Computed example of a mutant assay.
Amino acid sequence: MVRRITQKKRGVKTRKEKKLFILGLEGKNETEKNYFMSFNPILKKARIQCNVSNTTDPVGLVNDLIKLKKNELLEPDDTICCVFDADTEPYKEKQIQEAAKLANTNKIELIISNPSFEIWFLLHFIYTTKYYDNKSLIDDLKAYVPNYKKSGSIFNDIKVDTEKAIINAKRLDEHHNQQNKTKYLDRNPSTDVWKLVSWISNEIN
Protein backbone atom coordinates (compact mmCIF):
# COMPACT_ATOMS: atom_id res chain seq x y z
CA MET A 1 0.00 0.00 0.00
CA VAL A 2 1.14 3.56 -0.65
CA ARG A 3 2.08 5.52 2.43
CA ARG A 4 3.89 8.72 1.50
CA ILE A 5 3.14 10.94 4.48
CA THR A 6 3.93 10.05 8.05
CA GLN A 7 2.34 11.60 11.12
CA LYS A 8 4.68 13.27 13.62
CA LYS A 9 4.14 15.17 16.86
CA ARG A 10 1.33 17.77 16.97
CA GLY A 11 -0.08 16.55 13.64
CA VAL A 12 2.82 17.78 11.50
CA LYS A 13 3.02 15.87 8.23
CA THR A 14 6.34 15.28 6.53
CA ARG A 15 6.97 14.07 3.03
CA LYS A 16 9.35 11.27 2.16
CA GLU A 17 12.08 12.28 -0.26
CA LYS A 18 11.23 10.14 -3.28
CA LYS A 19 8.33 10.81 -5.61
CA LEU A 20 6.15 7.91 -6.67
CA PHE A 21 5.24 6.46 -10.03
CA ILE A 22 2.11 4.42 -9.38
CA LEU A 23 1.34 2.05 -12.23
CA GLY A 24 -2.00 0.33 -12.65
CA LEU A 25 -1.38 -2.98 -14.42
CA GLU A 26 -3.40 -5.86 -15.78
CA GLY A 27 -3.00 -8.90 -13.56
CA LYS A 28 -3.03 -11.58 -16.25
CA ASN A 29 0.78 -11.63 -16.56
CA GLU A 30 3.84 -10.12 -14.94
CA THR A 31 5.61 -8.78 -18.04
CA GLU A 32 4.99 -5.11 -17.33
CA LYS A 33 5.54 -5.42 -13.59
CA ASN A 34 8.89 -7.17 -14.01
CA TYR A 35 10.06 -4.55 -16.48
CA PHE A 36 9.12 -1.44 -14.53
CA MET A 37 10.16 -2.73 -11.12
CA SER A 38 13.62 -3.30 -12.59
CA PHE A 39 14.08 0.47 -12.66
CA ASN A 40 13.87 0.83 -8.88
CA PRO A 41 17.49 -0.12 -8.08
CA ILE A 42 18.80 2.63 -10.39
CA LEU A 43 16.32 5.36 -9.42
CA LYS A 44 17.70 8.00 -7.08
CA LYS A 45 14.84 10.48 -6.85
CA ALA A 46 11.77 8.29 -7.32
CA ARG A 47 10.23 4.91 -6.69
CA ILE A 48 7.95 2.76 -8.82
CA GLN A 49 5.01 0.98 -7.29
CA CYS A 50 2.75 -1.38 -9.22
CA ASN A 51 -0.93 -1.75 -8.49
CA VAL A 52 -1.90 -5.06 -10.09
CA SER A 53 -5.61 -5.35 -10.85
CA ASN A 54 -7.78 -8.42 -11.26
CA THR A 55 -9.64 -6.73 -14.09
CA THR A 56 -8.41 -6.54 -17.67
CA ASP A 57 -10.76 -3.96 -19.15
CA PRO A 58 -9.40 -0.37 -19.40
CA VAL A 59 -12.31 1.26 -17.58
CA GLY A 60 -11.95 -1.14 -14.65
CA LEU A 61 -8.22 -0.48 -14.47
CA VAL A 62 -8.75 3.28 -14.35
CA ASN A 63 -11.48 2.92 -11.71
CA ASP A 64 -9.10 0.90 -9.53
CA LEU A 65 -6.60 3.76 -9.68
CA ILE A 66 -9.28 6.33 -8.87
CA LYS A 67 -10.12 4.34 -5.73
CA LEU A 68 -6.42 4.22 -4.85
CA LYS A 69 -6.15 8.01 -5.21
CA LYS A 70 -9.08 8.49 -2.83
CA ASN A 71 -7.81 6.07 -0.19
CA GLU A 72 -4.10 6.85 -0.15
CA LEU A 73 -2.06 9.88 0.86
CA LEU A 74 -0.27 11.07 -2.25
CA GLU A 75 1.81 14.09 -3.19
CA PRO A 76 1.07 16.50 -6.10
CA ASP A 77 4.16 15.41 -8.04
CA ASP A 78 3.36 11.70 -7.88
CA THR A 79 2.59 10.28 -11.33
CA ILE A 80 -0.26 7.80 -11.75
CA CYS A 81 -0.41 5.75 -14.94
CA CYS A 82 -2.73 3.07 -16.27
CA VAL A 83 -0.73 0.61 -18.36
CA PHE A 84 -2.56 -1.84 -20.61
CA ASP A 85 -2.69 -3.50 -24.03
CA ALA A 86 -5.06 -2.45 -26.80
CA ASP A 87 -5.11 -5.99 -28.23
CA THR A 88 -6.98 -6.35 -31.53
CA GLU A 89 -10.61 -7.01 -30.58
CA PRO A 90 -12.96 -4.33 -32.04
CA TYR A 91 -14.92 -3.98 -28.78
CA LYS A 92 -11.76 -2.70 -27.05
CA GLU A 93 -11.96 0.66 -28.90
CA LYS A 94 -15.07 1.79 -27.04
CA GLN A 95 -13.59 0.69 -23.71
CA ILE A 96 -10.40 2.63 -24.35
CA GLN A 97 -12.30 5.77 -25.37
CA GLU A 98 -14.32 5.60 -22.14
CA ALA A 99 -11.19 4.95 -20.09
CA ALA A 100 -9.45 7.93 -21.71
CA LYS A 101 -12.24 10.31 -20.67
CA LEU A 102 -12.29 8.93 -17.14
CA ALA A 103 -8.51 9.10 -16.84
CA ASN A 104 -8.35 12.68 -18.12
CA THR A 105 -10.93 13.80 -15.56
CA ASN A 106 -8.95 12.19 -12.73
CA LYS A 107 -5.44 13.18 -13.87
CA ILE A 108 -4.35 9.66 -14.70
CA GLU A 109 -2.05 8.98 -17.65
CA LEU A 110 -2.95 6.20 -20.08
CA ILE A 111 0.01 4.16 -21.34
CA ILE A 112 -1.33 1.99 -24.16
CA SER A 113 0.53 -0.57 -26.25
CA ASN A 114 -0.94 -1.86 -29.49
CA PRO A 115 -1.35 -4.76 -29.76
CA SER A 116 0.64 -5.56 -26.60
CA PHE A 117 3.54 -4.48 -24.38
CA GLU A 118 5.95 -6.59 -26.42
CA ILE A 119 5.98 -3.94 -29.15
CA TRP A 120 8.00 -1.79 -26.74
CA PHE A 121 10.56 -4.58 -26.43
CA LEU A 122 10.72 -5.10 -30.19
CA LEU A 123 11.37 -1.39 -30.78
CA HIS A 124 14.66 -1.78 -28.91
CA PHE A 125 15.85 -3.76 -31.93
CA ILE A 126 14.01 -2.46 -35.01
CA TYR A 127 11.62 0.15 -36.32
CA THR A 128 8.59 -1.37 -37.99
CA THR A 129 5.11 -0.36 -39.14
CA LYS A 130 4.02 -3.96 -39.67
CA TYR A 131 0.52 -4.80 -38.44
CA TYR A 132 0.65 -7.29 -35.55
CA ASP A 133 -1.58 -9.57 -33.60
CA ASN A 134 -0.23 -10.84 -30.28
CA LYS A 135 1.19 -14.07 -31.68
CA SER A 136 3.00 -12.57 -34.66
CA LEU A 137 4.48 -9.87 -32.44
CA ILE A 138 5.99 -12.37 -30.03
CA ASP A 139 7.23 -14.46 -32.96
CA ASP A 140 9.13 -11.42 -34.31
CA LEU A 141 10.46 -10.53 -30.87
CA LYS A 142 11.84 -14.05 -30.47
CA ALA A 143 14.01 -13.47 -33.52
CA TYR A 144 15.99 -11.11 -31.24
CA VAL A 145 15.23 -12.70 -27.85
CA PRO A 146 14.94 -16.44 -28.59
CA ASN A 147 14.13 -17.44 -25.02
CA TYR A 148 11.55 -14.73 -24.41
CA LYS A 149 8.77 -15.61 -21.96
CA LYS A 150 5.93 -13.29 -20.95
CA SER A 151 6.48 -13.89 -17.25
CA GLY A 152 10.23 -13.32 -17.44
CA SER A 153 12.36 -10.18 -17.44
CA ILE A 154 14.62 -8.93 -20.23
CA PHE A 155 15.28 -5.51 -18.71
CA ASN A 156 19.04 -6.00 -18.34
CA ASP A 157 19.32 -7.33 -21.88
CA ILE A 158 17.64 -4.35 -23.55
CA LYS A 159 18.25 -1.35 -21.28
CA VAL A 160 21.29 -0.24 -23.29
CA ASP A 161 18.98 0.36 -26.26
CA THR A 162 16.29 2.28 -24.37
CA GLU A 163 16.98 5.51 -26.22
CA LYS A 164 16.70 3.69 -29.54
CA ALA A 165 13.30 2.32 -28.48
CA ILE A 166 12.11 5.80 -27.51
CA ILE A 167 13.15 7.17 -30.91
CA ASN A 168 11.40 4.31 -32.72
CA ALA A 169 8.21 4.71 -30.67
CA LYS A 170 8.11 8.45 -31.36
CA ARG A 171 8.63 7.72 -35.03
CA LEU A 172 5.65 5.36 -34.98
CA ASP A 173 3.50 8.08 -33.40
CA GLU A 174 4.49 10.47 -36.18
CA HIS A 175 3.71 7.79 -38.79
CA HIS A 176 0.16 7.32 -37.47
CA ASN A 177 -0.39 11.05 -37.01
CA GLN A 178 0.56 11.72 -40.62
CA GLN A 179 -2.13 9.25 -41.64
CA ASN A 180 -4.66 10.95 -39.33
CA LYS A 181 -5.31 7.79 -37.36
CA THR A 182 -7.29 8.84 -34.30
CA LYS A 183 -8.76 5.50 -33.20
CA TYR A 184 -6.55 3.58 -30.79
CA LEU A 185 -6.96 0.24 -32.57
CA ASP A 186 -5.98 1.79 -35.90
CA ARG A 187 -2.58 2.77 -34.49
CA ASN A 188 -1.07 -0.69 -34.85
CA PRO A 189 1.74 -1.00 -33.97
CA SER A 190 2.30 1.70 -31.37
CA THR A 191 3.12 2.20 -27.71
CA ASP A 192 3.02 5.04 -25.18
CA VAL A 193 5.57 3.31 -22.96
CA TRP A 194 8.25 5.65 -24.29
CA LYS A 195 6.55 8.54 -22.45
CA LEU A 196 6.55 6.75 -19.11
CA VAL A 197 10.12 5.54 -19.53
CA SER A 198 11.21 9.09 -20.38
CA TRP A 199 9.58 10.42 -17.20
CA ILE A 200 11.18 7.68 -15.14
CA SER A 201 14.59 8.26 -16.72
CA ASN A 202 14.51 11.89 -15.58
CA GLU A 203 14.61 10.60 -11.99
CA ILE A 204 17.67 8.37 -12.40
CA ASN A 205 20.33 11.06 -11.93
Rank of each mutant, 00 (worst) to 15 (best):
residue 1 M to F: 09
residue 1 M to C: 08
residue 1 M to I: 08
residue 6 T to E: 14
residue 8 K to T: 13
residue 8 K to G: 07
residue 9 K to L: 15
residue 10 R to N: 14
residue 10 R to G: 07
residue 11 G to D: 11
residue 13 K to Q: 08
residue 13 K to F: 02
residue 13 K to G: 10
residue 13 K to W: 02
residue 14 T to S: 15
residue 19 K to R: 10
residue 26 E to T: 09
residue 27 G to Q: 08
residue 29 N to E: 11
residue 29 N to S: 14
residue 30 E to Y: 00
residue 31 T to K: 01
residue 32 E to H: 00
residue 37 M to T: 12
residue 37 M to E: 14
residue 37 M to S: 11
residue 40 N to M: 06
residue 41 P to R: 14
residue 44 K to Y: 11
residue 47 R to E: 15
residue 49 Q to F: 05
residue 50 C to Q: 11
residue 54 N to K: 13
residue 59 V to K: 03
residue 62 V to Y: 01
residue 64 D to L: 03
residue 66 I to E: 02
residue 67 K to C: 01
residue 68 L to I: 05
residue 69 K to A: 04
residue 70 K to E: 14
residue 71 N to G: 13
residue 72 E to R: 08
residue 76 P to C: 13
residue 77 D to R: 11
residue 77 D to P: 15
residue 77 D to T: 15
residue 78 D to V: 15
residue 80 I to T: 12
residue 81 C to D: 05
residue 81 C to T: 07
residue 83 V to I: 08
residue 84 F to A: 05
residue 86 A to I: 03
residue 89 E to D: 10
residue 89 E to S: 13
residue 91 Y to M: 15
residue 92 K to G: 06
residue 95 Q to N: 07
residue 95 Q to W: 03
residue 97 Q to A: 09
residue 98 E to R: 11
residue 98 E to H: 08
residue 99 A to V: 00
residue 100 A to H: 12
residue 102 L to S: 12
residue 105 T to Y: 04
residue 105 T to H: 12
residue 106 N to V: 12
residue 108 I to V: 14
residue 111 I to N: 03
residue 112 I to M: 02
residue 114 N to E: 02
residue 115 P to I: 15
residue 117 F to P: 05
residue 120 W to D: 05
residue 120 W to P: 11
residue 120 W to S: 11
residue 121 F to Y: 12
residue 121 F to L: 14
residue 122 L to V: 04
residue 123 L to T: 09
residue 125 F to M: 10
residue 131 Y to L: 11
residue 131 Y to A: 13
residue 133 D to M: 03
residue 134 N to K: 13
residue 140 D to W: 00
residue 141 L to K: 01
residue 141 L to S: 01
residue 142 K to P: 02
residue 144 Y to N: 09
residue 144 Y to P: 06
residue 144 Y to S: 14
residue 148 Y to L: 04
residue 150 K to W: 01
residue 153 S to L: 04
residue 155 F to R: 09
residue 155 F to V: 09
residue 156 N to M: 06
residue 164 K to F: 10
residue 166 I to C: 12
residue 168 N to C: 09
residue 169 A to E: 09
residue 172 L to Q: 05
residue 174 E to L: 04
residue 175 H to R: 05
residue 176 H to L: 05
residue 177 N to M: 12
residue 177 N to W: 01
residue 178 Q to L: 07
residue 183 K to M: 02
residue 186 D to G: 00
residue 187 R to D: 00
residue 189 P to W: 04
residue 191 T to Q: 00
residue 192 D to R: 04
residue 192 D to F: 06
residue 193 V to A: 03
residue 194 W to F: 09
residue 195 K to E: 01
residue 195 K to I: 08
residue 195 K to T: 06
residue 200 I to F: 02
residue 202 N to R: 07
residue 202 N to F: 00
residue 205 N to Q: 07
